[in-house]
Simulated scan of single mutants.
Amino acid sequence: MTAQPDRIVHVTTVHQPFDPRIFYKQLASLRDAGFDTHLIAPHDRTEQVQGISIHALPQSTARWRRIALHPTALRMAQALNADLYQVHDPELLPVAFLLREATGARIVYDMHENYRAKGPILGRALRTLERWAFRWVDHVLIAEESYRSIVEAGPVSSTYIPNYFRPIGDARLGAPAKAGHTPARLLYTGTLSASRGLRTMVKLAARIRRAGRPETIDLVGICRYEKQRAWAKARIQEEDLNSILSRVGWDTYVPPSTMPPYYRRADVGLALFEPHPNHRGSIPTKFYEYLHYGLPLICSDIPRWRRFVERHACGAVVPPGEPAAVLDVLDEWRAHPERYRERAERARAAASRYRWKPVGQRLATLYRQVLNEKVTGASVTG
């Protein structure tokens, strides 16, 4: 008889089912490696997508309602009788512990953020949960090297699984910038919030309009904060910015598979974040996406980000919260189009260093090691 493939179940109550890291990178790579892959996540229906079985939880954005889903998530996960469970949210660690006790399955925890930065109360509570879990989980995946010091405080082994680029949808490249081309179409992709530069980009659009400049800005992503959406909408109407600033998604999640056309027609990728602790310790996934499409970056002057941009000569950094500095960079590139073209070429050249495929292959190898109780704690650097 042919042996049944090991069953893997990922569980989240926070993330969208088609979260790029969870669905398109990790689960897709595990499926390709021959695992029987399942995902328990908030969704409107239970279905199978691209060979991955999605088991739907009710959808909710409120934390207390998500926590109320934990008994349901536990029952669903236990019924699947997996060989290994991976949880993506620190609040699910007690559920993972109960699964371990009830099934004897292996447990992996994927640390997406430095949750201590969530604030003095919530952040401390989440860190306490993590430190407790480090005593009994089988392995921890970390999305950023900077999180390693957090995990090393406990006895558990960890592996760096970076959020490198994996093509989703039609990821064909656009044509390289031609000689004399000057950048006019600016792009931001991903979750929108004040800490991720929403206010700065709206103010940038206002400056563009008042000065009669040629630039436009595409914001492609969801803003989950109603008050921030209301502020931005009011400012856009007051300043008559609809011809300058387009919003795609806004109050609705934008599937990654629909984003490639926006990348291909853009000239510059924006990341005008505030220097929040989580931002200072990580490289945004959108950096790797911008590089793939040959988009020079204009990003906030955060030390880790500055080093990335300078290492690859792929863009420019500006002081956080200063839209005038963005216009200064664009003016320089307009006056010297060869500088813009060189940065675009450097972006394309750097992209090959940040591909997901080898990381996904190593993730599958790591899973086999965890299942065979042979984890050594070796680091995956991609």
Rank of each mutant, 00 (worst) to 15 (best):
S158R: 12
S158C: 15
T159R: 09
T159M: 08
Y160V: 08
Y160D: 02
I161N: 01
N163A: 12
N163D: 11
N163G: 08
N163I: 07
N163V: 10
N163H: 07
Y164I: 03
Y164Q: 06
F165H: 13
F165N: 01
F165I: 02
R166C: 00
R166G: 08
R166H: 10
P167L: 04
P167M: 05
P167H: 11
I168W: 10
G169I: 10
G169A: 08
G169Y: 05
D170Y: 10
D170P: 07
A171M: 06
R172E: 14
R172Q: 15
L173K: 14
L173H: 14
G174F: 01
G174T: 07
G174Q: 00
A175F: 01
A175T: 15
A175Q: 14
A175S: 15
P176K: 08
P176C: 10
A177L: 05
A177T: 10
A177W: 04
K178R: 15
K178P: 06
A179W: 03
A179V: 13
A179C: 01
G180L: 09
G180H: 07
H181C: 01
H181L: 09
T182L: 01
T182S: 13
T182D: 02
T182K: 13
P183T: 06
P183Q: 10
A184D: 14
A184P: 00
L186R: 02
L186P: 00
L187V: 05
L187A: 07
T189R: 06
T189G: 03
T189V: 15
G190V: 03
T191F: 04
T191N: 13
L192I: 14
L192D: 00
L192M: 13
S193H: 06
S193D: 08
S193V: 04
S193M: 02
S193W: 05
A194K: 13
A194C: 05
S195G: 13
S195K: 15
R196Q: 11
R199E: 11
T200V: 09
T200Y: 07
M201T: 12
M201C: 06
M201V: 09
M201P: 02
K203R: 15
K203W: 06
L204I: 08
L204Q: 09
L204C: 09
L204K: 07
A206V: 07
A206L: 05
A206T: 14
A206E: 14
A206R: 14
R207P: 00
R207M: 14
R207W: 01
R207N: 11
I208M: 06
R209M: 05
R209W: 03
G212R: 03
R213S: 02
P214Q: 04
P214K: 05
E215F: 07
E215L: 09
E215H: 15
E215T: 04
T216F: 00
T216V: 12
I217V: 10
I217E: 00
I217G: 01
V220H: 03
V220A: 04
V220N: 03
G221L: 09
G221K: 04
I222C: 13
I222D: 14
C223T: 01
C223Y: 05
C223R: 02
Y225T: 12
Y225W: 06
E226Q: 14
E226A: 14
K227A: 15
K227R: 15
K227V: 07
